[in-house]
Each structure stands twice: as structure tokens, then as C-alpha cells.
Design a protein around this nucleic acid. Structure first.
Lengths: 329, 329
DNA sequence: TTGTATGCGTTATCAG
DNA sequence: CTGATAACGCATACAA
């Protein structure tokens, strides 16, 4: 394995000089810089990230903390987009990222989790899909030991930023479009799990809309479950003229149920996942650009790691209809 | 962060002694061992994995090399299952695994990829979904620098094992079941991409079956694409009485096309992905237990890393029908 | 502008 | 059985 030492020897300079070139320090002559770069290229040298993080107290590595939910593959799609967005941006920012799945740390306490991340040279973490129940993660955030960006949860402090779309507005928007198109008056709203931070926000959105439009609103807890959405739809849809869902997966469950019941009700979802193209009927939904959210999350984390304070970052959403013809490839 | 130095000081012993206790070296007195362990426990010390891999040349970490395919979310589901299986087993085997996505290494040459993995302290790699076109990966395997397990590609040498189901037999089985149930005689076979190792094997399976059953076989390259499967079905299905597909995603494309054409032909797929539940009609398919394949892959890698030679590992498959009712949750 | 020396947290070697 | 001490590959304050 070619090391910085080999490069230094080959280029006839000191190790520290090579290091400076690699890290784009200003005080290196153009000549030496070129010489070193030439050797780096020729020897195919890639700096040892492990040694680098060990050595410097600087920009450490970044961990993507992903929830592995085996049961619903909708979340697979979302997770993958989160990952790919982050990786893409990491390349650009020259950050070393690793992915950590919650299952790996699920039975650790805060101290252990902290040690685990520290032992991996992690300085910053992006947490995806945190719920109110994740006690350990809350403590981790409060500890201030890491720079953290939380996606879709309103945690902000000195070393923590949050990033998300405006869930209330998005829910308001998509529902408004749907009920306006269909002149609905009696809304069945299938909410998300009460543990989810976004659940309450989305609920505020639909409530505001129903107040404004003087619609009758029936709220049921669909727990982000397709099956539960199906059952609730079977039970309550007849007395409503529209089904608004807090997630696409529930929207699909509701739509399939309506088809089986052989009655029509407009349905709208939330997330914009590809699976919507397989639901059988088109629906309005909120498209969240998960890859982009993740990219911006990484940029925000980069900001935090360079000493800035935590803050709230908002991302735009858009309304779409997902058709089978559009998603097939 | 508490380090080995702190433990040593607190326990009143040398750093090296602590290290020996941590790594279960034999030549340490029971007394010191207990004392050190007590301090380790009390201080909540967790060894720094980064420093450890830097220092030692021993059993390194394991990398899961995953293909990130943004366009088809069927592969998301499969990748996630691979990952979760590997992580689960890694915990059990006490291996440190990291996930690497092909996009991170796509424009590196062998030397760079080698350095990259080495720089991460990687000793073993599991490669998922390798194609004949992945020149760099082929060289990586030939180099013998890493212990490697390749999933679904027949690469075996001193330090490389392959693991997969018997694709020829599986294709044979699922097609046989389908044509027997429906008394078919003219098979349209939508094959996978020619770059895929499994493509040829599956093709052998269907050919053998058609020989035995004296069926007319029409083979078309569906390239594992749902859209292409749709087009090919539109074009050729009328002259066949059955559509056998080398992947579920193509089976779904074919089925949707048949529904749109308003003709019936039995269709069968391959993989057993959950998306099959949303295809509209039930189909036979081969269920590959991706999580289990990954688990066994990790066990095999562990074997390689402890000095054993590469070999071919076979995994069982089963025939299933995926119903919406079964996959919803 | 360049080089020297020291340290990061471990493991490994070799005296004691 | 135990403890110095030299690597491991790199970053960086400091000296030249």
C-alpha cells in the first residue's frame, strides 16, 4: 500500500509538504505542488482516511443514521434516496461518510453509542426519521458531543440543526387541491403514528384547511400502516367524500380498499414514492425530494462542523400526481 | 473521550497490559485482568476501532459493496435486505462492517479502489450484483488483496468465494410450474441483461425445460427493464401462450401490458420482491431470501478471513405466489 | 516556502 | 507476567 511517506520520498520532499498539498494549504510553491500532485497521480496514492481522522481533530467523518424498516419497502426507497443524496454531496465536500443502521445501536445506551461513534472517528451525524420515542438519540443530541442534523424532527440547539419541508403547509396544500378538484365536504384523515414528529404538524395543516373550508373532519390514526389504512377506509370511507392520508403507503392501502369496496372517493397521499405508480389509480401527493433534503442536510452538517450554530432549515415541496407511465423504466 | 491511557492510569498498569486484557491475550494474571476489566467497566471505555485498525494488521473490517440503482426501486428493496442480513450476522460474529456504494468508487481504477478499501481498514468485501462489465472489480478479485465473497457471480479463487442460488434450476422450476398449470406450449421468455452473470444461467434453465416439454421458445432481451418488458409483451405475447420473465420487475411490466391489451397469458417472475403484490394479478415467482443469502455470505467471508480457501456456496430457493394480502402491513 | 518533531489511540515486539 | 517503546499514516505547530 502506497503511503504518504512513499509519495514524499518519490517527490523528494518532506511528508508534511505532501500533507499540505493534499489538504490544499496555501503556503506551498506552485512548483512543489505540481511535483507532488504528479507523483500522487502516478503512484495512485489515496490518503488513508483512518489515519487522517486519528491524527487530526478537524473535520471528522460523518455518519448517516438510517432506520432499517424491514416490513415496508416504501421506506427502503426513501432510505436509499437519502443515502444516495448524502453520498453524492459528500463526494463534493470531500467528507468521509459512513452509513450506520439503527439496528446496530439499538440496544446501546448513550455512553455506548457515543463511544461507538467516537471510535469510528465520527464528528457529525445525520439522523433520519427520529421519533419521540428514541430516548437515546435525544440524549445524544443534548450531550453536544456531536454535530447533528436531524431530518424531520424539530430539534435545534448549539450543535444541532433540523431540516425538513413545511409539513403543515404541504398537507394543507395537497388536501386543498384534492378537495377543491372534487368539491369535498366530509374529510376522512388518516394520520401517522403519534410517535412521529411530522404527524402533529401534518395534522395542523389539515385542521387549518377544514376550518377554512368549513369541512367536517374525521381523524383516525393510521399509524403509517397500509393495512390499517385499508381497515379504516373500509370502516369510515362510506361516511366521507374524500380520504386524505399522511403517507403514500396509507393512500395506497386506502385506494385499494376503495376499489375493493367498489366505491369512489378521491384519495391523496404524502411523500411522492414510486410505489404510488402501482396503486391502480392516480392520486395527488406531496413530493419530497429526499435526495435533495439529504444533500442539504450534509451541507448543513458541514456548516455545523466548521463551528457555526444550529438552526432550522426549510426545504421546498411540490404537489404531483404519480402515473405508472412516468415511473416505469 | 476515555482512552486506553486513562484506563491504564486508573488501574495502575501499563498501556500494553490493558491492550492485552482487551484482546484476550493469555499471558496476563487473573488478578490484573480482573482489575483492568473492572476499570474498563467503570469508565465505560470502548476501544477506538480507528486507532486499532491503524495499528494492527489483524482481522479488519468488512465492506458491503452495494449497487445504488436510482431508477428502479425494486433494487432498493433487495439492497436493503442484503444490508440488513449482513448487519444482523455481523453483530453476531462481532465483525465491524461498513457499507460502500458503487457510486463512491465508480471512477477509480484498481489501485485507487484498493487504497480506498485499505484506507478504511477493510480486509474483506462482499460484492452484490456484479456484472461482466465491472472490470475494476474483476481486477480487484484477481489481485488477491482482499478476501471477497461475490453474490450471484461465479468467481472463485484462493481468496474469493461465490454464493448464490441455483439460477438454472430455479428458472426451470418456476417456469415448469407455470406452464404445467396452464398447459402452455409457446413460451415467450424475457431474459435479463447480457452483462449479468445470472442471465445465462437462467436461460439454460428455460431452454432445458422447453427441450423436455417440447415447447416452442422465443427469447427476447428484456434487460431487466419493466418498460422493455412491457414493449416486448405488446409485440410478442399474442403469438405465445405464456410469458416467463427473468425478473419480477419484468413480470410486472409484462402483466400490466397484458392487462392493458386485455388478453390473458400466465406470467411468472423471478426474485420474490414485495412489489409483486402490487402487480394486479398473482404470479408464480422464485423467492430468493436476500437477507439469508447475505448472512451466509458474511459467514463465508468470515471463513475466508480466517485463512480458509475460496469455494462455491449454494443457497436454497423456493417457489411462491405473492398476494397483496400477504405483503400488506 | 520547506522540513522537523510530536501526537492521535492502538497493537506488537522485546526487554526486564 | 509486565512494562517501555517503536510502529501505523497522517496533520500540524514550530523551527529553519
Amino acid at each position: 500500500m502506497v503511503s504518504i511517506k512513499d509519495v514524499a520520498k518519490e517527490a523528494g520532499v518532506a511528508i508534511s509538504t505532501v500533507s499540505k498539498v493534499l489538504n490544499n494549504y496555501p503556503n506551498v510553491s506552485e512548483e512543489t505542488r505540481n511535483k507532488v500532485n504528479e507523483v500522487v497521480e502516478r503512484l495512485g496514492f489515496v490518503p488513508n482516511a483512518v489515519a487522517a481522522t486519528l491524527s487530526s481533530k478537524r473535520t471528522g467523518r460523518v455518519a448517516l443514521l438510517i432506520k432499517l424498516n424491514l416490513h415496508t419497502q416504501a421506506s427502503d426507497e426513501i432510505s436509499m434516496q437519502y443515502i444516495s443524496g448524502a453520498i453524492h454531496k459528500a463526494k463534493e465536500l470531500q467528507l468521509d461518510v459512513i452509513t450506520v443502521f439503527t439496528s446496530m445501536i439499538e440496544d446501546m445506551d448513550v455512553a455506548e453509542v457515543t463511544s461507538y461513534f467516537a471510535s469510528q472517528g465520527i464528528k457529525g451525524i445525520i439522523i433520519y426519521g427520529m421519533t419521540t420515542k428514541d430516548k437515546v438519540l435525544h440524549k445524544l443530541i443534548d450531550s453536544g458531543n456531536f454535530k447533528i442534523v436531524v431530518v424531520d424532527a424539530p430539534m435545534v440547539n448549539e450543535s444541532t440543526s433540523s431540516i425538513s419541508i413545511d409539513h403543515a403547509k404541504a398537507q394543507y396544500d395537497v388536501a386543498k387541491k384534492t378537495i377543491t378538484e372534487n368539491k369535498c365536504k366530509k374529510i376522512l384523515y388518516l394520520a401517522g403514528d403519534e410517535d412521529g414528529y411530522v404527524t402533529e404538524e401534518r395534522l395542523q395543516g389539515i385542521k387549518k384547511l377544514c376550518d377554512e373550508k368549513k369541512c367536517k373532519l374525521t381523524v383516525r390514526n393510521g399509524k403509517f400502516s397500509e393495512l390499517r389504512a385499508r381497515e379504516l377506509t373500509m370502516k369510515y370511507a362510506k361516511n366521507s367524500d374524500c380520504v386524505v392520508c399522511a403517507s403514500d403507503i396509507m393512500a395506497i392501502g386506502a385506494m385499494k380498499a376503495l376499489i375493493d369496496m367498489d366505491i369512489f372517493r378521491p384519495v391523496c397521499g404524502f411523500d411522492g414514492i414510486i410505489l404510488m405508480g402501482y396503486a391502480g389509480k392516480q392520486m395527488n401527493t406531496v413530493r419530497q425530494d429526499f435526495a435533495k433534503i439529504s444533500e442539504e442536510g450534509l451541507m448543513e452538517l458541514n456548516r455545523l462542523m466548521s463551528g457555526e450554530k444550529g438552526r432550522k432549515v426549510a426545504v421546498k415541496h411540490e404537489l404531483v400526481r404519480i402515473k405508472y407511465e412516468d415511473i416505469i423504466c
